[in-house]
């Protein structure tokens, strides 16, 4: 069995700590919360400390933060219906662009692998795709109304401009751009969860997706491309995504977040039962019916709901978590 060692507990947010996001190099991370603040943390000696506090960007709760792949921009999604883009061109971090358009709460924001596109989603049931159109200029590329309920999370494929979204309508949808008229459309609907899908994470190949839900399960989905060897039928020359594994019986409450390490292949989940769990794919796992083993259960990881988990992209098995209890924790996993 593996073990999660607590490296440090960070306090600093008043009220709920909603989300943490690693800088792509893994030496800095950002956190956000109910207190409308964004904090940037880095290591001083052995201690993680707050280096910068970004205030006055939003008028309500900040639900999610995301670093651009180049690491120069930070996007923040807020319940005030806006998404702010921060950068430090002037030497210190400032909000230099605000994306407006959502009717109400923005729940999630994500940068595409190229950093040229951004996706946002929210309570208005829509998913928006924005394009970086110049310095501090962002243009709306698409407004996607495929979901019929609140959209909780957006995530990009690790190497292609394919977007996935998770919703209160129990489904996950995928989208891509049609080059003919540069319009985006839904290319797949992933249906199997029995309640709200809260979060999702691609593996490093982008050919598998892990989702977590209020139905207390985690599901692994596999992409079957046109003309796949397995003979899975596709339509319109678009890939089909099939649920190939359901992890049930592990989580006792809603699973709020999931992170799939692109270096180690480990999956970590954040759950409403205050527990962080880590799953590892078995060595003899069949790609069409994979097996994942629970390798670590960190009881009382937080004193309340765990809202977010994030593997350090450097692959050093450091894991960040944050919670309703306002705390951020840094863990180190070892087998």
């Amino acid at each position: 069995m593996g073990k999660l060692e607590l490296l440090q507990t960070l306090t600093g947010h008043k009220g709920i700590a909603w989300n943490v996001s690693w800088h792509p190099q893994g030496q800095v991370f950002a956190s956000c919360g109910e207190d409308k603040m964004i904090k940037l943390w880095s290591k001083e000696g052995q201690e993680w400390t707050v280096k910068t506090v970004l205030v006055d960007g939003h008028q309500r709760t900040i639900r999610e933060v995301a670093w651009s792949p180049c690491g120069n921009f930070l996007a923040s999604a807020s319940f005030d219906a806006t998404t702010a883009i921060w950068d430090k061109k002037s030497g210190q971090f400032e909000c230099n662009a605000t994306l407006e358009g959502h009717e109400n709460e923005v729940k999630s924001v994500a940068w595409s692998p190229s950093g040229q596109l951004l996706a946002t989603c929210g309570r208005d049931k829509s998913v928006w795709v924005w394009e970086v159109a110049g310095e501090d200029e962002y243009e709306c590329e698409a407004v996607l109304n495929a979901h019929n309920q609140d959209v909780k999370k957006v995530a990009w494929h690790p190497s292609l401009d394919i977007l996935a979204s998770a919703s209160y309508d129990n489904t996950v949808k995928m989208y891509k751009e049609d080059s003919l008229d540069s319009d985006w459309s839904c290319i797949a609907t992933l249906q199997s969860h029995e309640s709200t899908v809260w979060s999702l994470a691609f593996d490093k190949t982008g050919e598998r997706l892990a989702t977590c839900s209020d139905d207390k399960t985690v599901k692994i989905w596999k992409e079957y491309k046109p003309d796949n060897q397995e003979g899975v039928i596709v339509s319109d020359r678009e890939s089909v995504w099939k649920c190939v594994c359901t992890l049930s019986g592990y989580h006792t409450r809603c699973v709020y977040d999931i992170t799939w390490c692109h270096k180690t292949g480990l999956i970590a989940t954040a759950c409403g039962d205050d527990i962080i769990r880590i799953f590892k794919e078995a060595d003899d796992s069949d790609s069409n019916a994979p097996t994942f083993e629970l390798v670590c259960t960190q009881l009382n990881a937080h004193s309340q709901d765990v809202n977010c988990v994030a593997w350090n992209p450097a692959g050093n098995e450091e894991l960040l978590s944050c919670s309703d209890d306002g705390e951020i924790k840094i863990w180190k996993f070892s087998e």
């Binding site: 009717e103 208005d124 109304n145």
Partner: peptide, 17 residues
């Protein structure tokens, strides 16, 4: 699918559920 335009869908017009 709603038959309203995209603009109206966003303003909750397709809220038929």
């Amino acid at each position: 699918a709603s038959r309203f335009s995209g603009a109206l869908q966003l303003t909750d017009l397709d809220d038929f559920i």
